[in-house]
Simulated assay, not measured.
Amino acid sequence: MSYCPIDHTLDDVQRKLEEQKAFLRDDLYKKSVIFLQQKQSQLVLNELFHLLKKYDLVTETERKVRHQGFEQLLK
């Protein structure tokens, strides 16, 4: 993911996750919810936020790339 100077709070990330829920695979949504119940670093919160950002608008090719990002982050 590209660098962003904005630090996203846990609330920001949770809100973005809920906004994109209808567009995410069910397993990615559930893993993300569980993942966010654990304490995460600011870097990880930012990365997850950007994986979710405009997820509903990306191409199928970009979704595949983001799925790989989710899998790496959530493992």
Rank of each mutant, 00 (worst) to 15 (best):
D56L: 00
D12L: 00
L28I: 13
L28F: 15
L45Y: 05
M1A: 03
E60W: 02
V65A: 14
L28D: 01
D7C: 05
L48F: 05
Q37M: 04
Y29P: 11
Q14L: 15
I6K: 14
N46R: 14
Q42I: 13
Y55A: 07
T9M: 02
V58L: 07
T59R: 05
R66N: 03
H67C: 06
K64S: 13
D7I: 12
K75T: 09
Y55P: 06
Q42M: 12
L73P: 01
Q40G: 07
Q20H: 01
K64A: 05
V58K: 04
E19I: 03
F49R: 11
H67G: 01
H50M: 10
D7G: 02
F70T: 06
V58T: 10
V65K: 14
K31L: 00
T61M: 09
G69K: 11
G69A: 04
K31Y: 00
L28N: 10
L57C: 12
D7R: 11
L43H: 08
L36W: 00
L74Q: 04
L43Q: 11
K64Y: 03
F70D: 06
H50G: 03
C4G: 12
L36G: 09
K53N: 15
H67D: 10
D12N: 14
K64L: 09
V33S: 07
Q68H: 10
S41Y: 04
L24G: 02
E19K: 13
L17G: 15
D7M: 03
D26S: 12
F70M: 01
R25W: 00
Q68W: 01
L17N: 09
L57T: 12
K54V: 03
L24I: 08
F23E: 15
H67K: 12
V65P: 00
S2L: 06
R25S: 07
Q72D: 12
D56P: 12
F23H: 14
D56G: 14
